[in-house]
Design a protein around this nucleic acid. Structure first.
Lengths: 331, 331
DNA sequence: TTCATAAGCGACATATACCGTCGTTTGTAA
DNA sequence: TTACAAACGACGGTATATGTCGCTTATGAA
């Protein structure tokens, strides 16, 4: 039974990407725990042999630290097929607008691998980058960037439920950055901003910290406190992020200009959506939807191309918006 | 020099996921082309040995077909670290709303692997699924689903520039599905819908086909024609998707209610964005932005919480919208 | 049914690469 | 300088990887 191959394979999986590294003794322990009793010498030999054909590198420190080259492509098994590669490129285009660059960077190895697969698979005549585009939906805004060290510490603290020592700059630029000890609870991403929900040491109420305003973060040894019964969904549904107005869905009726309704046919807003003709220029949309802020933003974005018919209170809201707008522009 | 490891590695990379498969003779040819001159017997032995520790399976056909189990996790080297795993989960949450399910399915193996990594890395007490949420931006709409066979054929045809035989159902439900031969040019994703830009055989103008309305697709042998000088960016910029109104950026000035402006601080709409106080309740935003439809949708979504000040023509547009709205609701 | 063909599989022999052991060298800290 | 730990080189016995060969089995045509 060829233990060699399995052992090398297991060893490779425990070598981290540069700048993280691992020394031979640690590898020996890890392998021993998995049932591979092996000499240090053998591990050294394996590493040297493997580094000839794989992008592995050892630093010059005394207990040699081994790592994968930072820019190494991932070697996936099974290999990335062209469909998956294309999907990765779609994700890259989409998420570039939605996630901080330093977070998305973690997926760079796969994006690079996808490039390779696509280059190889196309017939080389014309390039595939000319054949795929993702058009932005909504304003193109860049996600505020998060320091990689901060992201790393925060992710670790959340997953392992450890306390975190952070310095946090207030909303105003000139505010002093203050140091706090916090108990992280959860991560919430909304509208390009990553929030860390956590409790300040000594307090009991969860607060939202925008991650891009955390200047430094250090994972502490102490485990984090977690209020009994805390639930991220309850927290969100309590309206802390301003999402739900009303837990009961409503039956929306609204008149759209006909040319707008084309998009509604393409991707319906509800399973029971119905679109009826009203007259030559207008159609009526009827659908059961959640009664949220997002619904209002969406309806308002159509401006004068939509008129809310029902329910009455929503129509009333829109009437008031229209009145206010009239006042603005009639100066 | 241990050729064995490399050879087995190369072989594994050429085994596709179920239901696709590969036979030993093909593997021998592939490996021979990469410089591994090896007996068929050895390949058989390798496969059997590897299938003990890896999710490989052989069917019962006569020339045995080998494949990875369809639900096999990916084995990545370097291994997925917790940060990357979390990023994959974020992508899964985000893209679930933006890409058709059948397209996103190609990334399932990575999502599964990410689950495993996170399960292992957390301390097991509380589950990480309770610690991460992505809140939707905009209306929650499902991306219309695309048939997997269609997606596969279309992706292949686009990448390899081959003609495509499709049946396409018109916009109206009752329209007959018609068969066409088309020359695919590019893929454009907008607002949850994937469009295939292509030229119908015998015509010269590019058309947009919504992929979810393609009922069947078959890649033909003939290579696709491509108009000389066709550029996907030019095509988009010609306004075929209704995006750009004007190629010159404008300097936008708009008054926002103060509480709205908090979000603008978090993720600015432009690098040169400035926010000034106007009075107790209002602030003025000034920024250089592209003059697009998206800008208008975004501004309109604020309803009566924003008043456009400059440029003049944009203010005029909004004045008209306000007037029309006033007419609607004053019946 | 029979036969021809091709693929899968078991067995065997041998070259070789693997791996533990041990001694030497090198680099770091006291 | 000394002490210590890690890296490295060399060696030999053992395990195993691989080519070869022949038998078995499945498939399809006659």
């Amino acid at each position: 039974m060829t233990d060699t191959l399995l052992r090398q394979w297991a060893m490779l999986r425990h070598i981290p990407r540069h700048p993280r590294k691992v020394d031979t003794v640690s590898l020996q322990n890890i392998l021993a725990r998995q049932g591979h009793d092996i000499t240090l010498r053998t591990i050294q030999r394996d590493l040297i042999k493997l580094s000839v054909v794989l992008p592995l590198l050892a630093d010059n420190a005394k207990p040699q630290g081994w790592s994968w080259r930072a820019d190494a492509q991932t070697l996936d098994l099974p290999a990335l097929d062209p469909q998956a590669a294309l999907t990765f490129k779609l994700v890259e285009s989409y998420m570039g607008q939605l996630l901080p660059a330093s977070t998305l960077d973690y997926l760079q190895p796969w994006f690079r691998t996808a490039n390779g697969v696509l280059d190889q698979h196309g017939n080389g005549l014309a390039h595939w980058p000319d054949k795929i585009r993702v058009l932005p939906h909504g304003m193109v805004r860049k996600a505020p960037d998060i320091k990689p060290e901060v992201a790393e510490a925060v992710y670790q603290a959340v997953l392992q439920e450890r306390q975190l020592q952070i310095t946090y700059s207030g909303k105003s630029e000139d505010a002093e950055a203050l140091s706090h000890t916090i108990h992280p609870l959860a991560l919430v991403v909304r509208d390009r901003v990553v929030y860390l929900i956590s409790i300040f040491d000594g307090y009991t109420d969860p607060r939202q910290l925008a991650m891009h305003r955390i200047l430094s973060a250090k994972v502490l040894e102490e485990s984090a406190l977690r209020p009994i019964g805390f639930s991220i969904d309850t927290y969100i549904n309590d309206g802390e992020f301003g999402i739900p107005l009303n837990s009961h869905p409503i039956v929306l009726e609204a008149e759209f200009l006909r040319h707008v309704a084309i998009h509604l046919h393409e991707s319906p807003i509800a399973d029971d959506q119905v679109i009826e003709d009203v007259d030559e220029d207008n159609v009526l949309l009827r659908a059961t939807v959640p009664d949220t802020l997002e619904l209002r933003l969406w309806l308002k974005s159509f401006g004068d191309e939509v008129a809310v018919v029902k329910p009455d209170n929503l129509r009333q809201e829109f009437r008031e918006v229209a009145e206010n707008l009239g006042d603005y522009y009639n100066d």
